[in-house]
């Protein structure tokens, strides 16, 4: 059995991570799981970036002797990804700190509950009733009077 192509496997791994992270960000209702999904998508993007500088016939960009004997892989994407990983953990720590404040302020991390509570708070501060449904106007205002033409009433 022929061995599969290395580049194809790694591309599918990176794209799979990005897709799984995107789905996770779309479907997760818990804010902490959203942060985890973001970390996964970021890992996939890093893998694709390193892959962009890879050459199948090359060695790591570190000199072992005085002269270059074999071709080396591109060092520029590697330096870029090194930067991106460290910034990623900084962003993650900031997100966790914000989650802690959200939990202190609203007592929940569920996105739908958070939405209703934030809406209630905004409506309470503005002094209007919270919107009960999308079809009913908020603020206790009456329905607009349906326009009837004189021809229909006649």
């Amino acid at each position: 059995m022929n061995p599969p192509d290395l580049i194809t496997i790694l591309i599918s791994g990176g794209i799979g991570l990005v897709a799984i992270g995107a789905v996770g960000m779309a479907v997760s209702r818990h804010l902490l799981r959203l942060v985890l999904a973001l970390a996964i998508a970021e890992a996939g993007a890093n893998l694709l970036l390193v892959l962009a500088g890879y050459r199948w016939d090359a060695v790591a960009p570190i000199l072992t002797g005085a002269t270059v004997t074999r071709p080396m892989v591109d060092p520029v994407p590697q330096a870029l990804v090194l930067t991106a990983i460290v910034i990623g953990v900084g962003v993650q720590a900031l997100a966790v700190a914000l989650l802690i404040r959200v939990k202190e302020a609203y007592g929940t991390l569920d996105i739908r509950e958070l939405k209703t509570r934030v809406e209630q708070e905004i409506c309470g501060a503005a002094g209007i009733a919270p919107p009960e449904s999308a079809n009913k106007p908020g603020g206790g205002q009456p329905y607009p009077v349906p326009v009837t033409t004189s021809r229909e009433s006649a």
Partner: peptide, 24 residues
Amino acid sequence: SLLFAIGLAALLIGLAAQLPLGMT
């Protein structure tokens, strides 16, 4: 969301197939 993910993956695969990966 599943459809979105499949579309995103197809887009990325289409992009990656055009790149000279492995012999940059």
